[in-house]
């Protein structure tokens, strides 16, 4: 299943990928590549197919046609048993956080490591502790999601996405439901993940937000790619 070419730096390859739900096309003939440690935005209006694209990347949905490879794993014919292997390479952040309400912040983050098969409680405590420190939630480790603010929940979600040291971080409208300060803090964390070597792909419809970054932007409309603009090769994060 894994096809690694040491000379190929592309961590994501999409070739003529389409996805339809019944008669409605969410994505149509979408082709693009993403290089390792790239930081890019996927933008477009509501219904453009941004969230569908994220779902296809972590195999939340199967594509209807086309060809896609993520870190050497072929999504086109991926067996169900291979999906967890793919998902451990990817950290996903959602607009609605998707934290488990009855687990505290520490347990929400630690669950990723437990699911990946980590047995050492010491290792789990250490790594989760470090991440909570990084996202500024060390004092809230025992707090439950319903008691947190939106910004805190999203930072917990970022910690969860980063704790497995994924090669790719997918963030689906991560700042859409946050105030400007909280959004700024979440973006800084995503930049930190990028600085640590992760490939970061963020969907947003916020043009003002994108304009602050000097990086590649893919624009979708009606499920089709309408623009793919590279940055100016400066510092990605402001």
């Amino acid at each position: 299943m894994t096809q690694t070419d040491p000379l190929d730096n592309r961590i994501i390859r999409f070739y003529q990928v389409s996805k339809h739900f019944g008669d409605s096309w969410a994505l149509h003939d979408l082709s693009f590549d993403v290089e390792t440690n790239e930081f890019l935005f996927i933008t477009g209006p509501s219904g453009a197919g941004k969230s569908t694209l994220i779902k296809l990347l972590y195999m939340g949905e199967r594509m209807s046609s086309g060809y896609a490879i993520v870190d050497g794993m072929n999504l086109t014919r991926m067996h169900r048993r291979q999906i967890p292997v793919l998902r451990r390479k990817i950290g996903v952040i959602f607009q609605d956080f998707k934290l488990i309400a009855h687990l505290n912040v520490f347990r929400n983050v630690a669950l990723v490591m437990e699911a990946a098969g980590f047995k050492s409680r010491t290792e789990i405590r250490r790594r989760v502790g470090d991440l909570l420190e990084l996202v500024g939630l060390a004092d809230q480790a025992k707090a439950y999601p319903p008691t947190l603010s939106g910004g805190e929940k999203q930072r917990a979600a970022v910690a969860r996405a980063m704790v497995g040291k994924p090669k790719i971080i997918l963030a689906d409208e991560p700042t859409a439901s946050l105030d400007p300060d909280a959004a700024e803090r979440v973006l800084r964390l995503l930049c930190a993940a990028h600085a640590r070597g992760a490939t970061v792909l963020i969907t947003t419809h916020d043009r003002e937000l994108i304009s602050r970054f000097d990086t590649r932007v893919i624009r979708l409309q009606g499920g089709r790619k309408v623009a793919d603009a590279a940055g100016n090769a400066g510092e990605v994060c402001p």
């Binding site: 972590y58 939340g60 169900r80 048993r81 967890p84 998902r87 451990r88 996903v92 998707k98 934290l99 488990i100 009855h102 669950l111 990723v112 437990e114 699911a115 990946a116 969860r160 497995g164």
Partner: peptide
């Protein structure tokens, strides 16, 4: 259901 879905998204296999 949501809890199960989240657990799967973060990389849990079927056995877990």
């Amino acid at each position: 259901q949501e809890e199960i879905e989240i657990t799967r998204i973060i990389g849990a296999d079927e056995a877990f």
